[in-house]
């Protein structure tokens, strides 16, 4: 015991639940899928680059494969031609997985109420956080990510099951 207390100093003991500890750890390493569609993707790149630096949130590692990622940021307008691709990418991700719908086009079709654009990506995949803006500023995207972290912290293990079912 003497050895332990000399190493730990006066830190003492922290008790927590497994869920809280796991969720806390998960929020610090959300790996997004490298997936950009249109204008918002440029703002997403700006968020990852020098000035806004997403690596502060453990998100600097964009995975090109959906199998290795937890989060898909739908950045831009989803066309009818792209929709099956997006759905397939989402299906290939491993649970628990999350979706941020970035920008007005992905959230609700934006200004494009026409034949080409899917009126909101939630028609094809379930969305966790909507970020408004055309395109949203990097600060807005970061706010969306922090909102997602809050959601993740409150999750129970049982909620992970069935999360990939269509909305």
């Amino acid at each position: 015991m003497g050895v332990v207390s000399s190493k730990l100093g006066n830190l003492g003991v922290v008790t927590t639940t497994l869920e809280t500890a796991v969720n806390w750890a998960r929020t610090g390493a959300v790996w997004p899928l490298l997936f950009g569609l249109a204008c918002c993707a440029i703002e997403m790149m700006a968020t990852q680059a020098s000035d806004y630096d997403l690596s502060r949130f453990g998100m600097e590692l964009n995975r090109a494969s959906p199998r290795q990622s937890d989060l898909i940021i739908v950045a831009g307008r989803v066309t009818r031609k792209m929709a099956p691709v997006l759905r397939q990418l989402y299906d290939q991700m491993a649970s628990p997985k999350y979706v941020i719908s970035m920008g007005d086009c992905a959230s609700c079709g934006g200004v494009y109420n026409n034949y080409a654009i899917v009126q909101g990506v939630d028609e094809i995949i379930p969305v966790d956080v909507y970020v408004a803006g055309c395109p949203p500023r990097p600060e807005q995207l970061i706010h969306g990510i922090i909102t997602l972290h809050e959601k993740m912290r409150g999750e129970r293990f049982t909620q992970w099951i069935g999360k990939d079912q269509p909305a």
Binding site: C39, M82, A116
Partner: peptide, 25 residues
């Protein structure tokens, strides 16, 4: 065509001032 947005068609239903906003994108 994976990003075909129909901007040209949409402009046909906008006045010239409003269409500028669509050309941005």
């Amino acid at each position: 065509g994976f990003l075909h947005t129909g901007i040209e068609k949409n402009i046909e239903s906008k006045t010239y001032e409003k269409a500028v906003t669509l050309t941005d994108r």
